[in-house]
Design a protein around this nucleic acid. Structure first.
Length: 283
DNA sequence: CTGGATGCCTGGGAGC
DNA sequence: TGCTCCCAGGCATCCA
């Protein structure tokens, strides 16, 4: 469920503490959440080192939903939160259930990675450059997406807009919630075909995506169940959802009953009156 | 190559 | 109350 706004909120809430302290040691409680690219899996003895033991943190970097921690000595790890992953800064020693990795920091606080559903994981990388390279297949970051990016990446595609927005190779960071919210804001039908959009519509869609995501970051992300920022606080953006999970309820703009249907293997909700489908109009 | 389908995993809610 | 069933969803992987 963490999409771009949630990952960015975590990044911002984590960075001051990580930059101000040093990693003392790392404990791995569940080894299968650690994934290494190819077959470069380090021996157990060097696992802690690969996970930034004794490192000073240079910065936290993000592209789409991917979050990376870069060490000053060039070490790097990548965190994918999946559905239920959390990065929490904690001072009390209690171990929460589903805690998989614990970093003890020099200020004696602990950064923990927990993930009940285990769709997420920690990806090891041999270098910072390797992380950047692994991000190559991803599209432009959704927070700064422009119409021409979308048009170039998907303008000829016969896929639906919903499928296109969920495709991280087209743009990075949008998941099911913000796909539906962005399409509603842009007044575009989720089942419209990408190839039927003109340049103006792509511009409108890109603008809607940026606005929806920026607003959600201001509200510190959407908490439906599991999501928390690094301090453990829930977000507030779910209050502003206009279509997501509102199927059968009245459109907040025109009062028409919102429609729900599975599209691109995801529950999709839209307003049949507000959201037009250029694929139909052109016929 | 493109686009669609599947499986991974757990907690919570609905229904009986 | 307690049981079963189903659903949520990011992403890798497979298939046509």
């Amino acid at each position: 469920m963490p999409e771009l706004p949630e990952v960015e909120t975590i990044r911002r809430s984590l960075e001051p503490t990580l930059l101000a302290s040093r990693v003392l040691r790392v404990e791995v409680l569940r080894e299968d959440v650690i994934v290494a690219p190819g077959d470069s899996r380090p021996a157990p003895a060097s696992l802690a080192h690969a996970l930034l033991a004794r490192a000073e943190v240079e910065c936290l970097s993000r592209l789409g939903k991917r979050l990376a921690i870069f060490g000053k000595d060039g070490r790097a790890i990548e965190i994918q939160l999946g559905m239920s992953g959390q990065l929490l800064l904690r001072r009390d020693p209690e171990t929460l259930p589903h805690t998989h990795v614990v970093w003890t920091l020099s200020d004696r606080s602990r950064l923990i990675f927990r993930d009940p559903r285990r769709f997420g994981g920690i990806r090891l990388h041999p270098s910072i450059d390797h992380v950047i390279e692994s991000w190559q297949p991803l599209g432009h970051d959704a927070l700064t997406i422009r119409g021409h990016h979308l048009r170039r990446a998907a303008g000829n595609s016969r896929r639906t807009l919903k499928a296109v927005l969920l495709d991280q190779r087209v743009l990075a960071g949008v998941g099911n919630i913000y796909a539906d919210e962005s399409l509603f804001r842009a007044r575009l039908h989720p089942a419209a075909l990408a190839c039927d959009l003109d340049a103006r519509a792509w511009t409108r869609l890109a603008r809607a995506i940026r606005a929806v995501l920026a607003r959600a970051i201001e509200q510190r992300g959407s908490t439906l169940r599991d999501y928390r920022d690094a301090g453990g606080a829930p977000g507030q953006a779910q209050i502003a959802h206009r279509v997501y999970a509102r199927g059968g309820l009245a459109c907040l703009r025109c009062s028409m009953t919102l429609q729900s249907q599975t599209l691109a293997q995801r529950t999709t909700t839209w307003c049949p009156r507000c959201q037009t489908n250029p694929s139909h109009e052109s016929q």
